[in-house]
Simulated assay, not measured.
Amino acid sequence: MVVDGLKWMFLIIGTTIGAGYASGREIWQFFGHESGLAILIFSVLFTISCFVVLTISYQEKTENYSVVLARLMGPRFSKGYDVLIIVYLFTTTGIMIAGGGAALEYFHVPFTAGILFMCALLFIVSIRGVKGLTGLNSFLMPVLIISLILTLTVYFRLNADFSFSNWVSQRNWASSFTFTSLNLLPLVAVLSTTGTQIKHRGEIWIASIGSGSILGSVSFLYNESLLAAAEDIMLYEIPLFALLESYPHSVTAFMAVLLWTAIFTTAASGLHGLSTRLRSMLDMPSWLLAVLLLCLMLPVTELGFSRLISLLYPIYGILNLYLLVVVLIHPFFLSKRL
């Protein structure tokens, strides 16, 4: 039970820590100054959201998100959000591919070549389905999390100046709702494919609490570190590199590799969630569907990584607020069935 719970926990973290999050661009977009309380609220909201989605998926033995959406908001509204999720997964997976190309530019790999390389690997993982995805996340996520925490901790201790005395007067707490709602759609899409593989309800508790606690802690540490480097962030496409400016080249290169893996795992999660939904609607082999989707995503990557995040993420965060409200009130109805 514990091993399986950790497996789902790493799937959740791998789905959330992508191009926007791992690079720092997403955290800087939503948080920033006076955001300690907002990040704490996000951690709680994220934990509840994961628990609700996984529980519905476990009860209904789902293989894609359509049944979960119908349980949450009824057949009428679920159809509208079904379309929104398809558009969201399509565009954000394109953002991840663009982020992968941007990360490889650190190693002097041309942007286009980096994108094509990422698409080839995404095609291979998509053929293996959810087993390939969970295996990938179980291997990569612990390394990424530990390395990111160590890097941020060192930078935080040397550069940041934080005090708990200003938490009461913080005014950015509302961003916790839009940040959670932004990350909710990929969670619904990906976690809804696990319903037939969850064997015990204890796995849900481990995955939900573990992922919420880890992401909340890393988000807080990341945000405080970015605040200390606020003057340099605008000079970088990827804010993480602003924090790594004073590190040895070997450390920066290692973190660039880890950043790319985070981007890749989120892109793989998005492509998997999109493919499983479309396969229930289209009579098409999985490999052909993956090729078609990747080809259609290539034009999206031309808009650039930071531009896509600054334009689309706030819009999706607002549009998903209704889904977040529905998820948060669902436990009151869910408790009657447990």
Results as ranks from 00 to 15, higher is better:
291 V>I: 14
194 T>Y: 02
234 M>G: 15
102 A>Y: 15
173 W>A: 15
75 P>F: 05
80 G>M: 09
304 G>E: 10
271 L>N: 06
121 L>E: 02
205 W>Q: 11
107 F>G: 01
273 G>W: 09
231 E>A: 12
266 T>S: 11
57 S>R: 10
236 Y>T: 06
119 C>L: 12
73 M>P: 14
257 V>F: 15
213 S>R: 03
5 G>I: 07
103 A>P: 11
246 S>D: 15
91 T>D: 05
201 R>C: 04
337 R>E: 12
22 A>V: 13
138 S>C: 00
9 M>W: 06
292 L>D: 01
3 V>S: 04
180 T>G: 04
79 K>V: 12
197 Q>T: 14
259 L>R: 06
285 P>L: 00
237 E>P: 05
209 I>Y: 07
17 I>S: 01
286 S>G: 02
312 L>M: 10
303 L>C: 04
83 V>L: 15
147 S>E: 05
166 N>F: 07
325 V>K: 07
194 T>V: 05
163 S>V: 09
233 I>E: 10
260 W>L: 05
254 F>Y: 14
186 P>Y: 02
321 L>E: 11
29 Q>F: 01
280 S>W: 06
205 W>C: 07
29 Q>A: 09
241 F>L: 06
114 G>N: 08
263 I>E: 09
290 A>E: 03
110 P>D: 06
128 R>I: 12
179 F>Y: 15
336 K>C: 03
37 L>R: 09
112 T>P: 03
164 F>T: 10
279 R>D: 02
336 K>M: 08
125 V>D: 00
29 Q>W: 00
259 L>T: 08
85 I>L: 13
324 L>N: 00
40 L>A: 01
7 K>H: 01
205 W>V: 13
116 L>A: 05
154 V>E: 02
91 T>P: 00
245 E>W: 06
1 M>W: 07
56 I>P: 08
311 L>M: 10
191 L>F: 05
282 L>W: 11
9 M>I: 03
1 M>E: 04
30 F>G: 14
238 I>A: 07
145 I>P: 08
160 A>G: 01
139 F>V: 15
97 I>F: 02
15 T>V: 11
249 H>T: 01
1 M>A: 08
171 R>K: 15
190 V>N: 11
261 T>H: 00
233 I>A: 06
204 I>E: 06
276 T>Q: 14
321 L>F: 05
44 V>N: 07
265 T>E: 09
25 R>H: 02
73 M>Y: 07
110 P>A: 01
27 I>M: 10
141 M>S: 02
317 G>C: 04
149 I>H: 04
249 H>M: 05
13 I>E: 08
58 Y>T: 05
273 G>V: 03
336 K>R: 14
239 P>R: 10
158 L>N: 12
127 I>Q: 02
